[in-house]
Amino acid sequence: MGAASYTSRVPDSPAVLVDGLVMRYGAKVAVAGLSLAVERHTITAVLGPNGAGKTTTLETCEGYRAPQQGSVRVLGLDPIRDRKALLPRIGVMLQSGGAWSGVRAVEMLRHVARLHAHPLDPTVLVDRLGLEDCGRTPYRRLSGGQQQRLGLAMALVGRPELVFVDEPTAGLDPAVRRTVWELLDELRTDGVTVVLTTHYMEEAERLADRVHIVDKGVLVASGTPLELTRGGPRATIRLVVTEPFPPTAPESLRLALGDGTQVTQLDAVSLLVTGPADPSTLATVSRWCEDNSVLPESLTLGQRNLEDVFLELTGGSSSTVEGVVE
């Protein structure tokens, strides 16, 4: 059976539809009425600080947890009730683990392949992901990056229509990260829908057709990377100083700059000014530094990128964001 005939008879419901999802762990609310959709044949990135509810949402889509409120549909199916029909059609890459400690890398991949009806040839994935060297190595002796790639291979070997990949390139070196990006790109070209969570803004900006930004269990923004970065004033001034700012600094600088600018504290010693980066704004920032006896270490002009949008929307405390790529 050809791939074209397969995809053509799949109804056109969204690949993933989350509607008013609420999930609590005891008193803690992990997901607070989240709604989002993932269109088929796209790469969709779900961004959010740690604890935003990304993994909980993903695990609800994967059938690990039942929604406490709201509903979740994956390929038009209920992940719990229609589990048997759904599971063969999705691939899941966990953040870590997922293999016996004594199993050999390729043996594990063959095992998962044999649970499926029309699996990919495992050697294709081994080649593509550069796993040739770990064929007979037990899982526990693989490096973190190799375990990561094997996890991705296990998610893909059953030829799923939809894959959920949780931080696929965390901890990979830049060359391998590019290999994984190319692979994810090719998946989309071949008609697979990809849902990915990531901490790397560059990854989302480069790969994703659509980005959902989640914070504190709700959707705070969604759109194409271009739409998201175009949404506000595009220029930025990044001010880094030698001593930590007093807590009143962002508000005081915003007052000095007047309307039409936004000031976000990125960490103890850096502020992000979003607004018109004209000479007068620059002069105001310099004057504010002088008035407040603040010694700038660097003052950088730039374009508003996805990371800036992310930080503005999620409260700008970059301490909650791991591995943000500059």
């Binding site: 074209a4 397969y6 199993v103 029309h118 893909l156 059953g158 799923p160 229509e161 090719e186 008609g191």
Partner: peptide, 29 residues
Amino acid sequence: MTAGTFSPAPGAAPFLRQVTTQASMEARL
């Protein structure tokens, strides 16, 4: 859409094959 390497072709293996696959893996380990 042309058929690529990763063109979806999902499906579960027959139940018996799944069970014997799992059993032989566990016994080997």
